[in-house]
Amino acid sequence: MDLFLAQLLNGCALGALYGLFGIGFGLVFATMGILNAAQGAYASWAAIIAMYAIELAGLPFPLAALAGIAAGGAVAVLVDQLGFEPLRRFGPGNHQAAMLGALITSIAFWIMLDSAAGLMTGQQSLAFPPGSYPATVFQIGPLLLPAMQAVSLLALAVVGGGMHWLNTRTRFGAAMRAVGWDPVAAALGGVNSRVIVVATAGLAGGISGLAGILAGISTANISAGLGQGLMLKGFAAVVVGGYDDIRGTAIAGLLLGVLEVFCAQYLSSSWRDAFAYALLLGFLMLRPRGLFGGGGFTRA
């Protein structure tokens, strides 16, 4: 039973990273209709910047993490304005063609950003300096909870709750949803679509960046490929959770993490990813709107 609970906790902590990343990924998809393959690179870049902020600038971890999150947001805004904005302005009117163009553009940025991240890390797998982040292990009854696992769970709760509030209870959230639904109609209604899009891109990049930083610590791996693993699982969390519902993404992320860990513990690690993607496939076939998703749905 102790092992079951310990692995449940591990699964939730891992799933918190997927959920967190998925929130950022889903935000872009829901607001801008872009299946952004470069989103994983924002996570890598945020982790790299945060690590160098500690190593080179000597910043304490919280400030370094903020620097990383800001970097993730900045890269996201840059990609959006350089890559996606021209498509929005001058791209094809056909919705599906526009989505395909955005997807290809995002793949190009993904490859370029990953290559540049590889140069930044000297093509090595690096890590935050030992002792630079909270490493306490809490004992809760028979369970051990490393501080960074607690931080990951807390981050998902705060970011998930905060984004849900922002999305459903604020004017900014209403504007985001309006732009996501129809940018032209939103503009006619007085919403400055471009500002909303830029702010959403920055927010999504920052959230993915936070996921990257936490993943970089919990896996002791900061490299150009860091975001790729998050990307696939984050995408699965968005689909399973419902692409326009933050609560669903968070819960689906947790579900994926627990499924992955239990699969490795009680079945086989070789089957782990197969189960995760079988879940994704099952939702796509049986409930394409996901756990909490709305009725409007456009496949990429």
Binding site: L3, A6, Q7, N10, G11, A13, L14, P146, Q149, A215, S218, T219, N221, L226, G229, E260, V261, A264, Q265, S269
Partner: peptide
């Protein structure tokens, strides 16, 4: 990349 479950 994540080995917490394997370690447990």
């Amino acid at each position: 990349t994540d080995f917490t479950a394997a370690a447990t």
